[in-house]
């Protein structure tokens, strides 16, 4: 019979973080940590030891009293897209992101934490999380006590990779900032087909204050090694009014200018040239801003 991990001789299913920590501490060699497991389709890790994370109690998704949305790291993308609180959070930005992610059977396997921690440039959800000012609740694999897991903000300078973050820290929950629960947000993915890996992803959020945009966050992924924010674009939009903005048009100079300011240092991608991706990025930033403001524009 074919094997997903031919070298594996041991399989553990810890059901508490403490057991997981103990297993990792006592492991000989580097164990493979299994969450959704969909990366096994293109990577065949050479490990003797599989640690299946799926029995850990990190599957719940709930709104807190502060309107933060706590998403258990082992929640599948499918469960997230069916969750009512996630559907309505920040103008439905999470639904737009999960809609864009892989196919139905894969969404039932891929976990939110895996999509974040895998660190692949094309992962969609981290871009939305960055725009939602997400915090990661982590526990340290080097410690034996995880009663008080730490919360850390997502890195946004493009220098710290998500992968590096998880080398010795395990994410138990992704906590989305309640400040954005009733904010405006939009997510756009550009790829060759609906189930292809992202070439470019853009997420935009802002808090409507009267007719102004406050706390604007613009994040991009796909064409950069790790998702990153676009501070120049955010500064350009911060505090701007959108009262007279007529949605669904590309003639609005504010968003045209914001798109034109979007620039990043690109990673290599054989599917599209650098020039092409730079041009598409500008258009996508403009479109995603329009999409985020669209409902608000109609309300005005």
């Amino acid at each position: 019979m074919a094997k997903l991990i031919p070298t594996a001789t041991r399989y553990d299913r810890p059901d508490t973080p403490e057991t997981l920590q103990r297993l990792i501490k006592n492991a000989t060699g580097k164990p493979f940590l299994l969450a959704g497991g969909t990366s096994l389709g293109f990577s065949r890790p050479k490990t003797e030891h599989i640690i299946d994370l799926n029995r850990l109690p990190f599957r719940e998704c709930r709104l807190t009293a502060l309107h933060d949305l706590e998403i258990g790291a082992l929640t599948t993308i499918g469960d997230l897209e069916r969750h009512n609180d996630a559907k309505s959070f920040c103008g439905g930005i999470l639904t737009q992101a999960t809609d864009a992610l892989a196919s139905t059977p894969l969404r039932n396997l891929i976990t939110v934490g895996g999509n974040l921690a895998a660190g692949y440039p094309w992962c969609d959800l981290p871009v939305a999380f960055l725009a939602l000012n997400a915090r990661l609740r982590c526990f340290d694999s080097a410690q034996t006590d995880c009663v008080s897991p730490k919360e850390i903000s997502l890195p946004h300078d493009g220098q710290t990779t998500f992968k590096k973050l998880t080398e010795n820290q395990f994410v138990s929950h992704i906590v989305l900032d309640g400040k954005y629960a009733n904010a405006r947000g939009a997510f756009t993915k550009f790829s060759r087909t609906s189930t292809d890996l992202a070439i470019i992803t853009v997420a935009v959020t802002f808090i409507p204050d009267e007719n102004s945009m406050r706390s604007v966050r613009v994040a991009v992924g796909g064409l950069v090694p790790v998702p990153q924010r676009l501070p120049e674009v955010e500064m350009m939009l911060e505090g701007q009014t959108f009262k007279n903005f007529e949605g669904q048009t590309f003639e609005n100079s504010l968003f045209q200018e914001a798109g034109a300011a979007a620039d990043v240092i690109l990673r290599k991608d054989p599917r599209a040239s650098d020039d092409y991706r730079r041009n598409v990025l500008k258009t996508l930033v403009t479109r995603t801003c329009i999409k985020a403001t669209g409902v608000m524009a109609n309300e005005n």
């Binding site: 997903l4 991990i5 399989y11 299913r13 299994l34 497991g37 969909t38 096994l40 389709g41 599989i50 299946d52 799926n54 599948t76 499918g78 139905t104 059977p105 894969l106 039932n108 396997l109």
Partner: peptide
């Protein structure tokens, strides 16, 4: 594709032990 606890998933990517 099979239904795993009622949800369609790709069984080629699922370790049997899971």
């Amino acid at each position: 594709i099979i239904l795993l606890d009622g949800r369609p998933v790709n069984s080629c990517l699922v370790p049997a032990a899971r």
